[in-house]
Structures are given as structure tokens and as C-alpha cells.
Simulated assay, not measured.
Amino acid sequence: MYLYENQNLNMMKTNTFKLLLLSLMICSGLYAQSTSATLIKKVEGFSHPESVVFNQDKNEYYISNMADREEGDGFISRVSAEGEIIELKWIDGLKDPKGLLIKDDKVYVTNNTELIEISIADSKILRRIQVEGSKSLNDITVDAVGNIFISDSGKSAIYLMPGDSANMMVPEDKKGEIIEYLDSTRLEYVNGLFAQKDHLYAAAWGENNDGNFLKIDMDTREIEKISKEGIGNLDGVQPVGEDAFYISDWATGKIHLIKKDGEITEVLTSEKSAGDIFFDVEKDQLVLPMNHQNAVWWYQLQ
């Protein structure tokens, strides 16, 4: 019995050390130096997949499928950590679903001009929230106090659903609603979004393959270009530590590592239509939803 308890204690110490080490690596940005990758897996059978997120608690991916963009033909798939499709149409009846976000015990997905809230435990839609004035909602992100931000690529705008402890002034009659946060041509038809500390980082689609990587001050709403020149039709954005991001160029299939000072390095080239990517920190892998290929591709970073 003593030996068994000792083994358990040692295992707990090892796991705690691993988690601490992983946390230190993430915070220090050690993962930001991966600038090459190898394709290790292709999983087919999807219908124009757009976005990928990973549920740590369930150890599974959720993947949005735009399908043929007709009313009710879009859906979300459940996929195992190993890349096996568990349930192709876990949530269906959608229209053009794109960005995905896991918050608490729910999945949020942008669905054309509405935000859909899904219960993970019950596998059902809880709410459909119409976003007034929107044209084509895309990516979605959440900040440290629970504010949800949504990009509108069709309008070159960003919407806000204030959290319960919102750190910005919201009119009393607008609390609990989704309101317009920023509308500007300087957003360059914003696509990918990621909230980090006091800023939003945005991958812009641009007009002529010239979308930039942008930084938006959450309080002042000032927009700043991080990239020194247009990069492409930017889609997904994933943080790599605190000083860099992986971004995808939909038009070329290129994945770039871009630092906050604007330094950019090409990591890999897939094929045209690489969408809203996911960076698996623990496995050091990039997961690419390939829209035209109806597949999801896994790359091992090196």
C-alpha cells in the first residue's frame, strides 16, 4: 500500500511539473520559434470546413462546416484528439457557420448574421442571437473578463457582446445584447480575431490579396498595422506565447509566423483555402481546415 501511494504521489508531482513547465513555455513564448512543419495527417469527409477549436475537458475538436451555404445545410462536427470523426453532424441546421469559441460549458459559433450558443453537455442549441446590421460574421474571440468580440468580414466591422464584468462602458439598455464595437475601412475586411491582454489582434482579408495583420487597442479602439506590407487574404490567427502569432493566408495556403514587431517568417505552404487554423500547444501541431478540399490537415511543427 505504501509503495502504491508513493507511486501515486510521484505521478502527481510529475504531472504538476509538466503543467508548470508547459505554462512557463507558453508564457515565455518558447513555441514562437517553430518555423517549419511536416504534414502528418489528412482527414476527409467534411463539407467546406472553416474553423477548428479544441475542447480540453472532452479531449475533442469541434469543426464548423459551411457546406453549400444554403439555409440549414451547415453543421458542426465532433472529432477525436486523434483525428477520427466521432459525429459528423453533431449540431446541424445551420447556415454558413464559421468562427468557433468555447466559453465555460458552451460553444459559440457565428452563423451568417447571428451568433449561436450551444450547450456542450446537452448537444443542443440554446440561443440564436441576431446581430443587427451585420453582413457576414466570421471569427470570434473572448477577452480576460468575458467580453466576446466578433468580426464581420462583409462589413469591415467588429461587434461586441459584453461580459458580466465588462470593463468598458455599455449603455444599460444594451447589456446582454450584441452591439457594434468598431466599423472602419482600416479594419480591411477583418477576418481572424484574437484577444490578448488589452488588445485585439486581427488577420485582415484585404481587397486584393493585401490584407495586413492588425492590432486594436480595446479601450481607445485605435487600429495599428503590425505587418509592414500587405500579406494576403488572411484568415486564421493563433497566439504563440506572448510575442508572436501563426496566421493563415487563405489564397495561397501559406501559414506565417508573425511577431509583434512585424517580423514575418513562412512556416509552411498547404493549398489554397486554409481557413481558421488551430495551434495545439501541447503537441506543437497546427490543424488546418481546408475548405475546398473538404478535409482537415494536421502539421507537426519542427
Rank of each mutant, 00 (worst) to 15 (best):
V142F: 07
T141I: 13
N191K: 07
I216K: 03
K135R: 05
P171M: 06
S227L: 09
K215E: 13
R128A: 01
N167I: 10
G133L: 02
I129A: 06
G99W: 10
S156R: 03
D198G: 01
L115Y: 13
G206R: 00
T185F: 07
D143M: 08
S227A: 05
D217S: 15
V109S: 10
N112W: 08
S134F: 06
V107N: 00
K106W: 00
S153M: 11
K175D: 01
M161N: 04
G211K: 01
L193E: 08
I178A: 02
D217F: 10
E177C: 01
G176R: 00
S227G: 08
S227T: 07
S119P: 15
K215Q: 12
R127H: 13
K106N: 08
L137Q: 03
D173E: 05
V142G: 05
I226G: 06
S165I: 11
Y189G: 12
G211Y: 03
Y108D: 01
K135F: 02
I226R: 09
K106S: 07
I150W: 06
W205L: 14
L126V: 14
N112V: 08
G133R: 00
D210V: 04
S184M: 15
G206W: 12
N112K: 09
I140T: 02
L187R: 01
G211W: 04
A157I: 00
A157D: 08
V190T: 12
S165G: 08
A166P: 02
I125V: 15
I178C: 03
L182W: 06
G211A: 06
N147R: 05
I102Q: 09
R186K: 14
A121F: 12
L214P: 02
V142R: 02
M218K: 15
G99M: 06
S123P: 09
G192F: 10
H199A: 14
E224I: 13
I216N: 11
Q130T: 09
L200E: 10
K174W: 02
I125D: 15
S134W: 06
I226P: 10
D210Y: 04
M218R: 14
L137V: 14
N209C: 10
S134I: 00
S184P: 13
A195L: 11
E188P: 11
L115C: 13
M161Q: 09
T220V: 07
K197L: 03
K174A: 10
R128E: 04
I120K: 00
A203T: 01
R221P: 13
I116P: 06
I102A: 06
I148N: 15
D152F: 03
N191E: 05
E222M: 12
L182P: 11
